[in-house]
Amino acid sequence: MDKSTKDSNLVELLNNKDERAIELLFERFYEYLCSVVYRVVHDYEAARDVVQDLFFDLWRKRGSIHIETAIRPYLRRAAVNRALNYLKKQKIITSQDEDAAIDIPSDDMSGQLNLEHEELEQRIFNAIDLLPPKCKIVFSMSRFESMSYQEIADTMGISIKTVENQISKALKILRREVYTYAD
């Protein structure tokens, strides 16, 4: 077994309790999964812990793992589910989410910025980092996990109206931050 071993073979080897299989899976997917989890939890330490726990449980369940899809989407789905569970445990996801009106100044700026793509990209990424926590989570679920309003509402235990408000709030803040230099 080496770095050329196929992902599907790794699952088979893991089920045969081969420790090298979990090592290779860890090497291949750790960084990717940390990034995926971070985009949901927005906490570096938590992302590392969630992913390590995921691999640990994978090891403990060796011998009884049945994966019908490719390993990468399977691990991604598992990582996202765990990230959402983490948020629930941290009470970051609660039903007491604010439904208040958005009190961001009206934005009439031109938006016609002729920024280089890289500069624009960096400005957007920085703005995402600056979003309020719950707003960021709702935005992330929609943007990175392609979840519908209904799915986000169900996951977070909030109303669809609140999801709409949070998405609008996120987009409005991002637009303000990104295009602020247009004035």
Binding site: L120, I124, I128, R143, F144, L174, R175, V178
Partner: peptide, 9 residues
């Protein structure tokens, strides 16, 4: 913003 934010990592 929506299209570019997809690349956010």
């Amino acid at each position: 913003i929506w299209n570019i934010s997809k690349e956010y990592y």
